[in-house]
Nucleic acid binder design. Structure first.
Lengths: 136, 136
DNA sequence: ATGTATGCAAAACATTTGCACCTGG
DNA sequence: CCAGGTGCAAATGTTTTGCATACAT
């Protein structure tokens, strides 16, 4: 299975917790999940994996470039599989659902703004908060 | 003094802690400060104000539109006086210094992106992370 | 075998809250 | 005087860590 390769390539031992967590991230209905979400999903599938391990594994995955971590307003961090493509987020303040978008014009202007300020941009995050279609 | 008016207009009693905290926000070298920063500044000026009060007052100030609260990557929230004008942020990942900017083209595109997705935008935050001039 | 991962419980943070006391209008 | 504000300590919610045990290679 391709998951093993993913992990090995990242220099991580192929362990059951890591595989399970990776599977959950791949099969989650919502692409953007919190550590707690992952933990609950593990419990639901009768896995004996501690919350501490979930945090440790997600942190390792982030360092390995397997997932991306975001800090929305909610207080807890959310993770999503990193498919390599950059995008920004629309976050519903009612149902917490997250949609992704990507706008070349904005990306370009950001780069220009950073340059103009003498900043060496390493990263950026743009989140639009509001009510999604269903919550209005 | 204009601070009293600020507070009264917000329906807040003019108390010593509130005045002191407002003064600190106005006189801070760095416009963007954490609750802890404010608390330390109070200690430095020999004020007997608890950290809980700092949080309470800052939260009230936010509700009253006196300050804005931001969640950068750092884990703690930072506050800045709200002068009414919207702007986004350039955050130095080394020295934590924050610069402000505002770009009409980006603002406009954001609005369009939200509309296109059927989102009713209530708020948005754009943060560019990187190394500031001095830290490169 | 052996170095790395894990589970559990405890610690560490940032922030909030309950409650008795104090204070501004 | 008295509603509202404050200080302190304890509670909360999230994330991290120490350590003895279990597991992958």
């Amino acid at each position: 299975m391709t998951d093993n390769i993913h992990l090995k390539k990242a220099g991580l031992k192929v362990t059951l917790p890591r595989l399970k967590i990776l599977t959950i991230l791949e099969q989650a209905k919502e692409r953007h999940v919190s550590a707690e979400d992952v933990y609950r999903a593990l419990l639901a599938s009768k896995e004996e994996i501690g919350l501490a391990t979930v945090y440790r594994v997600l942190t390792q995955f982030e360092a390995a470039g397997i997932v991306k971590k975001h800090h929305f307003e909610s207080g807890q961090s959310v993770f999503e599989l990193d498919d390599g493509g950059h995008h920004d987020h629309l976050v519903c303040i009612q149902c917490s659902q997250v949609e992704e978008f990507m706008d070349q014009a904005i990306e370009k202007r950001q780069q220009e703004v950073a340059e103009q300020a003498g900043f060496l941009m390493t990263d950026h995050s743009l989140n639009i908060y509001g009510l999604c279609k269903r919550c209005q």
